[in-house]
């Protein structure tokens, strides 16, 4: 069962680094989704490990919340793009010192 968890952590780490390095807001969002999916994998794996369905339920809820989050996040990206003509997260950097 270890291998699933290791895979999950590798995917999570890759998602992390993607969030930190990519500048296109949509790609950053994809990396966030990758991290969520990595977590889901761990949940499902542990559900099987322990022999009950709570992990699967947790993964299900994560999916629901992720769906809501994507909807809102993409709407925000749309709004920003509409006003600033850019989808780069670095361009929205006015809130600073």
């Amino acid at each position: 069962m270890n291998e699933y968890v290791v895979l999950s952590s590798i995917l999570f780490t890759i998602g992390c680094v993607g969030v930190l390095t990519r500048r296109n807001a949509i790609v950053v969002f994809m990396c966030v989704e990758l991290m969520l999916n990595a977590c889901n994998l761990a949940f499902v794996a542990f559900a099987r490990q322990h022999g009950n369905l709570d992990g699967q339920i947790a993964a299900f809820f994560v999916m629901v919340v992720a769906a809501a989050e994507v909807v809102i996040g993409l709407a925000i990206i749309m709004t920003i793009f509409r006003t600033r003509r850019s989808a780069s997260v670095d361009d929205a950097s006015l809130l600073k010192y």
């Binding site: 699933y4 889901n40 994998l41 499902v44 794996a45 099987r48 699967q56 299900f60 999916m63």
Partner: peptide, 10 residues
């Protein structure tokens, strides 16, 4: 992988 992990619904 979910299917492999006995989670057909997911």
């Amino acid at each position: 992988l979910y299917a492999v992990l006995e989670a057909p619904f997911l």
